[in-house]
């Protein structure tokens, strides 16, 4: 049976992970390779590496991180952060990344999704959608959540799939950082609208939140950063909770 996936996200700035500073039992929690290997051992199903500097000058540092992580871990990983061209994607994939996620650039240039999908296959094109609830409507936000667009989230999700997205990473900026649980309504609405897998992100704080997002939210995977970095809950702890509630996990 296909299992539900749990995906820790590593924010990377100038070759170092940020946020993960009080991770115990790690020699250097700022080392993305060490953290990636640790998560892999703890049972993470995939990893996401987000380049949060994402300027052209800093890109080479990030490429080295991608290469080092690929060499160290034997689970799949997605890379994202400021990706806007086929050339960048080709480089990231050649270093060993399995998938790339595009966000703001796909809003500015939706044709990018199709070009990436045609060139590299839809299986490696993740479209990241950031959403915020505004007066009852879930609207897409861009530029790391700072700008509101007039696109409705489910409509945009459908469009990116028509354009060739192989997976959707849906982040609720309404729930993000709250630790009060994922946004179940919009995740379910998107999961029921699109034919591809949906990764839910934003709001995880307790093991039961993962159960909720997989059952009520209909997500295929769930992504979290802070709660894993700060060891609020462990990956294995979340998985045991899911197992005890009859959710298939690895």
């Amino acid at each position: 049976m296909l299992t539900k996936r749990i995906i820790p996200c590593l924010d990377i700035k100038e070759g170092r992970t940020v946020k993960g500073v009080n991770f115990v039992n790690l020699r250097d929690a700022g080392d993305p390779v060490e953290l990636a290997a640790r998560y892999s051992e703890e049972g993470a199903d995939e990893l996401t590496l987000l380049d949060i500097t994402a300027t052209l000058e800093k890109r080479s540092t990030f490429l080295q991180v991608v290469e080092d992580v690929a060499a160290a871990v034997s689970i799949p990983f997605t890379v994202g952060g400021g990706i806007a061209s086929e050339r960048e994607v080709e480089k990231l994939l050649s270093k060993g990344a399995d998938k790339v996620s595009v966000n703001t650039a796909s809003l500015r240039d939706p044709g990018l999704i199709t070009r990436l999908s045609d060139a590299f296959g839809d299986q490696c094109v993740v479209v990241a959608i950031d959403a915020r609830k505004v007066e009852g409507d879930w609207l897409v936000v861009s530029h790391a959540g700072t700008r509101l667009t007039d696109r409705r989230t489910t409509e945009w999700a459908k469009e990116v799939c028509d354009r060739g997205a192989g997976e959707i990473l849906l982040t609720s900026f309404t729930a993000d950082g709250s630790r009060n649980g994922f946004s179940l309504d919009i995740t379910r609405a998107v999961a029921e609208t699109v034919p591809v897998p949906v990764i839910a992100s934003g709001g995880a704080g307790l093991p039961v939140h993962f159960l909720d997002i997989f059952v009520d939210g209909q997500a295929d995977a769930a992504l979290a950063a802070g709660i894993f970095h700060y060891q609020v809950i462990g990956i294995e702890e979340a998985k045991n909770f899911l197992r005890n509630h009859n959710i298939a996990v690895r």
Binding site: M1, L2, T3, E167, P197, D220, A221
Partner: peptide, 8 residues
Amino acid sequence: KIPHMGWN
């Protein structure tokens, strides 16, 4: 869902 993506 298609692709079949993940751990089985």
